[in-house]
Design a protein around this nucleic acid. Sequence first.
DNA 1: TCGTCAATTCAATACGGTTTGAAGATCATG
DNA 2: CATGATCTTCAAACCGTATTGAATTGACGA
Lengths: 342, 342
Amino acid sequence: MSVTLKQLAASLGLSPTTVSRALNGFPEVNAETRKRVQDAAERAQYRPNTRAKSLATGRSMAIAHVIPVSTSHEIVNPVFADFIAGAGESYSRAGYEMLLRVTSDAEEAQTYRDLIARGAVDGFMVQAPKISDPRVDLLSEMGVPFVIHGRTSDIARPYSWLDINNQRSFRRATRFLIDLGHRRIALINGLEHLDFAARRRRGYLEGLESAGIGPDPDLMRQAEMTEPYGYRSLTEMMRLRSPPTAFLSSSMIVAYGLRRGLTDLGLRMGRDVSVITHDDDLSYLPNDGDVPVFTATRSSVREAGRRAAQMLLQLVKDPQCGPLTELMETALTVGASTGPAP
Amino acid sequence: MSVTLKQLAASLGLSPTTVSRALNGFPEVNAETRKRVQDAAERAQYRPNTRAKSLATGRSMAIAHVIPVSTSHEIVNPVFADFIAGAGESYSRAGYEMLLRVTSDAEEAQTYRDLIARGAVDGFMVQAPKISDPRVDLLSEMGVPFVIHGRTSDIARPYSWLDINNQRSFRRATRFLIDLGHRRIALINGLEHLDFAARRRRGYLEGLESAGIGPDPDLMRQAEMTEPYGYRSLTEMMRLRSPPTAFLSSSMIVAYGLRRGLTDLGLRMGRDVSVITHDDDLSYLPNDGDVPVFTATRSSVREAGRRAAQMLLQLVKDPQCGPLTELMETALTVGASTGPAP
DNA sequence: TCGTCAATTCAATACGGTTTGAAGATCATG
DNA sequence: CATGATCTTCAAACCGTATTGAATTGACGA
């Protein structure tokens, strides 16, 4: 169906060796011959067979994202898609393929081993790390390049990661609210067995502590980040004897729920109650304009995908280039959802 | 690093041929020998090299999803992720890999050609088809198996697709509102150069027409489906001299915006103004409970992914099995967001 | 005992590239 | 002109699997 190297060589009266070298930029090829080969390749729409190439070179030119689907926690969320898209851009640019492998929770470790044993990929991108995530040990022991989007805790072994500064970000947001006079600040967090959520909680607690405010368990929640979760959290907390005057939310969607709760109670966001949310800068959850609707800690998850992929490719090229790490700071963009404590 | 067939054969004192046949279930292998080989393969954690295998068989055991990233329209939306996840489940189960290839709008056609010419994949899943989508002709002429998630119009050539009955769904939703006494019904649609949106519009118009209601351009909008878009549409339309009493929304997120607009105006959804939305049944945009918040035309996009992938795999196995098509009906689930016209 | 046949196994080749080591052509040098 | 060095090209081997066609073995019937 497609032209092969051999056919191309035959049509030129050359050996496959020479054609291969001509196309791959080896120096020992006559300039005129190279030109001739390149032109012919162009005309014939020649494309080297990926499989054959990787068999010969031993590099598969592919990166896998392993996606466990479980009943307990849904990894297929809005952030997931944008991260993938960002990473995909980097892979494409570098001539790498992206393999998405959906697997069950129970088979996850075996899936990683399989992909390597079959020579299907050169490295892994690890998403949604938990606190003390076992994948770090697993992949380290396999000796395969990998990058974690996020971090994990309580792990002695060094590893490569790209994360946003969740702790600092939420500490700062908390301080921001405190500086506005708020003392009763609620945290509407994601599931805290996930590392990012645990760090946000820590930042929140630090912020409170730095102002001498003791944490109140009634003002801290964790759950899957949905709109109804935000709504429920808000309405329930506003019924407390001493309700919060400000909320810290882990996602735009949760913030939508918070806002709805407020309106239902006849309260105005930014005046009666303040809200700060984390904003992953997703195109279909916009929060821009002259004055953004929400005051937010913003960081593009798509950009994170791009960069994490670049790190991984670098690691694949030179596994010795040591654990690479990158900590992205978030931007605290002030919008209309915050104001002085009433 | 990993065991090869040759090594396994040597360790057993057998030829690679026999080992290969033993593992692949050929009948001409002695039962005892087969057992011995299988045990050894198990013990050595033998996994056939994907690349070598597909080079030898000519089948790459991979399906590609090509994702164009453009400035004009964002394909990386919530629906996209869940569809991918569903399809991935089917691929995994069948031993196929899923390749995600991010490409620019301009290079899209070339990307399809490339992947085939390089022997990287056996077929394509096509997402987010436009009206009269050029990819049908492109892929048909390439003679490669593909399935479209959705449909496209004005194309004579038959092709394989899996779609939900958008037209019927929106006609029914419109009729539902009309039966409740509504006459001024607004359509807050997605971008109508996308086929699904065009069909929804058609269904909406049919519904109106069947009741003798003429369409009103002031009550029809299309745009990227975001929350602010829903909000803006609602507030603007409610300012019309004769505002709508009901809204038809193309996505949960848009419906969130509609609801917010209503509350801001002091109107109650389901009493003062009715809302029906399409619901793709995404886990992080839940709309369930005894009485769902929104009356919705519901259809799991994840399930669509599963089925579309199965269709594609069938098509890959037997390209002659003709264009396969599947039209999934949506479920009209009645929630709290609709009521008799005031 | 010999030929036939079925049951097993194997050597050789193919898939489409890359890479190694050697060979042929060209050139300058003494 | 012989020698060696430099360019340029090529035949052959290799990557890890599947498959074709032939070889080996043992059982069976004549």
